[in-house]
Design a protein around this nucleic acid. Structure first.
Lengths: 199, 199
DNA sequence: ACGGCTATGTTAGAGCGTCTAACTAAGTTA
DNA sequence: TAACTTAGTTAGACGCTCTAACATAGCCGT
């Protein structure tokens, strides 16, 4: 956690983004609840009052980081889809794998994105946008033009599975359970088995 | 959050347990990270220094609560098993359903139990004891005398599913996804589909 | 009964954190 | 170039965790 960029004078020029970056690094390093505004300020080289020109409070800083996370996650889904037949099992498995991979690459952030506290409309919307990529694939697989209830029903068990897998892996439970199976294979297995309408 | 019991005099008699109870109530009410030792003290009617006779620090108070949670969860598994053929799909589904039900009944606590921070040997052991109930059922279903690697492999996808379902439900995502399917039915579905050796 | 020991409370306070108020410097615009 | 806006600053109120020093109550052997 060292200063990313010296400020040029009294005005910083890019403080908001630097605070987001510092916050993110701290969240990843120490966990979301041990993050402190003060420490982010030290990292950015500003006084502890400076953030309050850009964020209403500590929580808004964390929300900004979580938003960044959802954006990246959505992008990683799009990337994962490249080269797969849209709506295929492969495509859906690729998105699910990207989900778990993102969580493992950013455990603190991922945990915060789904922390339950820190609610905001923007955050909710970002989450929906992210999930929309999954829903789109499932809809296509089912030959639906749009995302209706049947698509939601079909997609949910798979989301459930990858969400659980993400948490178990970042908590080291997969290790404890001696699961050496690759994430992709596990997700592929779940896609095959679960991607139907439940009961 | 009001005082559960007046203290009788200078000495309290039951402070440790009352602090655990107060901590638990606050964790449930405000979330694990907004919990404060001070507030638990006010609830228990003691000075802010009193807890440190019983707990090394704030974290240990939270761990004590999480331990209580694992104990209850294990007990709820045992209860759920009553009346089901050991090792049957029904039995396994009952345990999985109890898992999700417990999370929904104690969302703040559940989140804390799997928070990742607050690690301790006792907590890990309690978690293992809890999971052992699941593993026992799966082993029996597979005709294994003891929990070997094959049992672990078979049980893990189911754990993954119920863990994910628990989080999605306490985060209100099931609602958002318009999933009206009962937890038991979803878990039963997953049990049928996933309870085999992957790949 | 009583004197000491231990357990478990107390108050005081250091140190850190969030956030506000009042001020100040730099950029923007008429 | 004066007036306004934006984005920093310092000072400080207040809450939180945790420690140090002290006080009170129960217990135990005599």
């Amino acid at each position: 956690m060292d200063q990313v960029k010296q400020k040029t004078g009294y005005h910083h020029g890019d403080l908001r983004q630097q605070l987001v970056a510092a916050t993110r690094a701290l969240v990843e390093e120490k966990g979301p609840d041990l993050f402190s505004v003060s420490e982010a300020c030290r990292a950015a080289g500003v006084s502890t009052a400076a953030p309050y020109r850009h964020f209403a409070d500590r929580t808004e800083m964390l929300i900004a980081v979580a938003l960044e996370g959802f954006g990246e996650m959505t992008a990683s889904f799009e990337t994962a889809l490249a080269g797969h037949e849209p709506g295929s099992n492969d495509a859906i498995t690729a998105v699910g794998t990207a989900y778990v991979d993102y969580a493992e690459a950013n455990p603190g952030l991922f945990r915060m994105m789904f922390a339950g506290d820190h609610q905001s409309d923007a955050l909710e919307e970002a989450g929906h946008g992210c999930y929309a990529v999954v829903l789109g694939q499932v809809a296509r697989r089912m030959g639906r033009a749009e995302v209706d209830d049947a698509v939601m029903q079909a997609a949910f068990p798979l989301w459930t599975f990858v969400h659980g897998l993400a948490f178990l892996r970042i908590d080291g439970k997969a290790e404890f359970a001696k699961m050496q199976t690759e994430v992709r294979d596990l997700v592929g297995f779940a896609t095959q088995r679960l991607m139907v309408r439940p009961g």
